[in-house]
Simulated assay, not measured.
Amino acid sequence: MINVERAMVVDRPAEEVLRYLADFGNTPGWDPGTESCVRLDTGPVAEGAQWRTTSRFRGRRTELVYRLEQYRPDRLVFVGHNRTVRATDDITVRASRGRTLLVYRASLRFNGLARLAAPLLRAEFERLADAVADRLPRVLAER
């Protein structure tokens, strides 16, 4: 299993940050590994909403279906899966003096033979988390 975590301070209100991140369809704008993200259902973004993501990692495309498992005023949890991996994105926000402390945690649990590759992929996931921590505050600031 691979776990990465990054904390960021954003010059936007916490409610606005949470609302933006709750729509997983915005992911291609702030996650450099995500090429597309399409909502699979309709209606308001709420627990149970689902998206199909297409990501590129190490030159390969992969698709996962993500579900919004938790939508609370200070936390979002998305769980994605395909045959190879189960991915969890856990995002917390906390207001602090007109700014927002945003903590992004990603966990990847590989299935089958892919589990053997997990230790070799850790460094690349750390780099990807660094890229998210660089891009996400800028994207939120431009909104």
Results as ranks from 00 to 15, higher is better:
L40A: 01
I91H: 01
L102N: 00
V79P: 06
A106N: 10
G48P: 09
R75Q: 13
E15H: 08
S96E: 13
L121V: 11
R52P: 03
V93A: 06
G59E: 08
P137W: 04
L76P: 01
G59C: 09
P137I: 06
L40M: 01
V93I: 11
E47D: 10
E5S: 15
Q50T: 14
R86G: 05
P28D: 02
R6I: 12
L21Q: 02
P44L: 10
R75S: 05
R122D: 08
R60K: 11
D74I: 02
R58Q: 11
V85E: 13
R19A: 00
E63M: 14
T100F: 00
N82H: 14
P28G: 04
R39G: 00
F125N: 12
F78R: 07
L21P: 00
V139D: 10
D74A: 07
R138T: 09
W30G: 08
W30N: 09
E16H: 02
D74C: 04
R115H: 05
D74F: 03
G112F: 10
E47L: 08
A106R: 12
A14I: 00
E69K: 15
R39N: 01
A22F: 05
S96F: 05
T54D: 09
T54F: 10
Y104Q: 02
L76F: 02
F110D: 09
T92P: 07
T100K: 01
L76E: 00
E35V: 14
V4D: 03
R75I: 03
G80S: 11
A95Q: 02
Q70T: 14
F125E: 12
R135A: 12
R75Y: 03
R97A: 13
S36D: 07
E124I: 07
E16K: 04
A114T: 14
R83P: 10
